[in-house]
């Protein structure tokens, strides 16, 4: 990776949600550890994929990054500036540069607004382009960049008149219209038909090419990641357990959790018999985390000391990090 200034940097970010006490006498306060001590950097023009199973804190991480949830601890840097505790105008200004694409295109568009109004909304919010014609032009450009051509066919329609893929393009157009530097894509294709997924992924990849946008791509599906990510971060129970270049993570996974994820990915050749690592047990409750390494109750290679020591973050190969005592 280049050594230029990262566009986003997280330092020991932590987000805990307090759990309602179940009994009147229970004094101990408990927390859901949604994001626990996460650090990473996102470089300009880079696609970083954040992979993990449902409930591991991926989405919370994205919301915290946008300051839609206040972080409990840690710092967020945007272009070298600490933006952890921004509010009001400066926060609005920061959000302008980081845009989100949500998972569910059926829910993330207001059914009472036309497509044109939805895409123009960010411009209205930020009071950019007060001139109506200029605003319209920008909306048209964003829609066409997002692959909705000709834009005039869509401007006056309502979300329920569009298909899922088209809606997700509208969401992307709404993010693009502000010309952001970073796109946070929170499972942008998981609700779409498989046939449409590739189109949307191609769109995101081409946006990176043409506009140099950095993308934080959140997904539970390693298959879509291999498609266009530069680097992969694997998350388990609120913590990143492995991070490295896409090829090195996919070809030489270090962490047993990554290995298990990769081993159950379907391969095109049905005759190829591979050893599948089926993880035992359930994901532990993020309220009562296991001691030591939080993966040890399910880990196939766990050793006694895994129960005591929380593994440190180590660079095992160049630019390939993992948090495991056994590698």
């Amino acid at each position: 990776m280049s050594e230029q200034q990262p566009i986003i940097e997280l330092k020991n970010l932590r987000k805990l949600f307090p759990v309602n006490k179940t009994s009147l006498w229970e004094q101990e306060e408990k927390f859901v550890h949604a994001v626990d001590d996460v650090s990473f950097v996102l470089h300009p023009g880079e696609v970083l994929a954040l992979v993990g199973e449902s409930g591991c804190g991926k989405s919370t991480l994205a919301l915290t990054l946008m300051n839609l949830e206040t972080p409990t601890e840690g710092q967020i840097f945007f272009e070298g500036r600490d933006v952890t505790h921004l509010s009001g105008k400066p926060l609005q200004e920061m959000r302008r540069h980081i845009q989100m694409v949500f998972q569910d295109p059926y829910e993330s568009l207001n059914p009472t607004m036309t497509i044109g109004d939805i895409v123009a909304e960010p411009l209205v919010v930020h009071r950019l382009e007060p001139n109506k014609q200029a605003r319209q032009d920008r909306v048209v450009r964003a829609l066409e960049d997002a692959g909705l051509k000709p834009a005039s066919n869509f401007m006056h329609r309502y979300p329920h008149e569009l298909s899922g893929g088209q809606r997700q393009r509208v969401v992307i157009a709404g993010a693009l219209v502000l010309e952001p530097k970073v796109l946070l894509a929170d499972e942008p294709v998981s609700m779409l038909d498989v046939s449409i997924r590739a189109e949307i992924l191609n769109l995101l990849a081409s946006l990176r090419e043409t506009r140099g946008i950095s993308v934080l791509f959140i997904t539970h599906d390693l298959g879509t990641v291999a498609y266009f990510a530069d680097r992969i971060a694997v998350m388990y129970l609120g913590r990143i357990v492995e991070m490295g270049g896409t090829l090195s993570v996919l070809e030489r996974p270090l962490h047993p959790y990554t290995k298990a994820l990769l081993s159950v990915m379907p391969v095109p050749n049905p005759r190829l018999r591979r050893e599948r690592i089926i993880l035992q047990g359930e994901t532990p409750n993020p309220i009562d985390l296991p001691s030591g390494c939080r993966f040890h109750p399910r880990c196939p290679i766990a050793q006694p000391h895994c129960q005591q020591t929380d593994p440190a973050w180590r660079e095992i190969e160049p630019a390939h990090w993992a948090a495991c005592l056994e590698v």
Binding site: M66, L68, Q99, M100, L109, G174
Partner: peptide, 8 residues
Amino acid sequence: LRARSIGA
């Protein structure tokens, strides 16, 4: 949530 993330 989307409106909020836009900065509204």
